[in-house]
Design a protein around this nucleic acid. Structure first.
Lengths: 148, 148
DNA sequence: GTACACCTTCCCATGATGGGAAGGTCAAGC
DNA sequence: GCTTGACCTTCCCATCATGGGAAGGTGTAC
């Protein structure tokens, strides 16, 4: 099975399959004489595992740990659960932060007429000539860019 | 006011202030004879505006638009509202996706004993020898990496 | 005058992903 | 056997917002 077919079969792009190989997340598959990668069932299983872990928002490094645990028949389920729990907390916090942004902006948008007139509570609130009082300057940032 | 003081006053790091200047998001401030940047009130207002927009998850390009609208006293509030609304939808969708991941994983974690034994529904579900039936191969990806 | 905190510019790294170039391979149809 | 087009290979570059750090200049307090 060629890399393109493996991509279709597992839902991971050829680009990413090669990338995962290059960083050692998956083992290098066999090659034909002419250098084409050949994927066997075991390779596909690993790629499908990765695809599902990715759908759950696990990072490459977490997937590396999970794959190791998956292959280790004697691992303690507690080890897996620990990774999962840490990840759940991070996911929930990111979700919360994004939802909070969305809601804040939603409230602002509701008070904006959204017509031809210039008066706009949204932009006024962002400009906020209002007291920058209670806001500690060096609180941890948690904008969009930090959410990955 | 030096860049370091401006950073403390606005909550944006010196690194980012220089970056925002380099991409033209904020105007280049005056300089002392020796080349130090000097920030005046107007500069600080713009930086504070940016900081608050950033807290609401706006991207640099959206902030660029918002700053233009902010400076334009005759803009229609509808223009601001349109940007906000588009952004709200994106934020809400990202929050939803992350919450869904979190919940899925939470359900799996609840069924995992988390003890010394190897049996672990979490990793078994990710490995999922179960039917890859209803899952279309090329649905849009929406993992962690896409959430920015 | 020395030490130290600050400033400057420049380059590099992040994480997961895609784009695209330049060139090789394979299979189908003629 | 030859052409065509779909595939494969490697390599480099871009994304987005942010930080790290080097090498060197400036400003201020003692």
């Amino acid at each position: 099975m060629n890399i393109g077919q493996a991509a279709k079969a597992t839902g991971i792009s050829t680009k990413m399959i090669r990338y995962y190989e290059s960083i050692g997340l998956v083992a290098a598959p066999h090659r034909t004489e002419s250098g084409y990668r050949v994927y066997l069932d075991d390779d596909l299983h690993a790629l499908r595992f990765i695809n599902r872990a990715r759908d759950l928002g696990f990072s490459v490094e977490q997937m590396r740990d999970l794959l190791t645990l998956w292959r280790d028949r004697d691992r303690a389920s507690a080890d897996v659960k620990a990774i999962a729990r840490a990840h759940i907390a991070v996911l929930a916090e990111k979700a919360r932060a994004l939802a909070a942004m969305s809601e804040t902006l939603q409230h602002l948008a509701e008070t904006c007429h959204g017509d031809d007139r210039p008066s706009c509570p949204i932009i006024e609130k962002i400009a906020a000539a209002v007291p920058p009082s209670g806001r500690p300057a060096n609180r941890p940032r948690f904008g969009i860019a930090q959410l990955h």
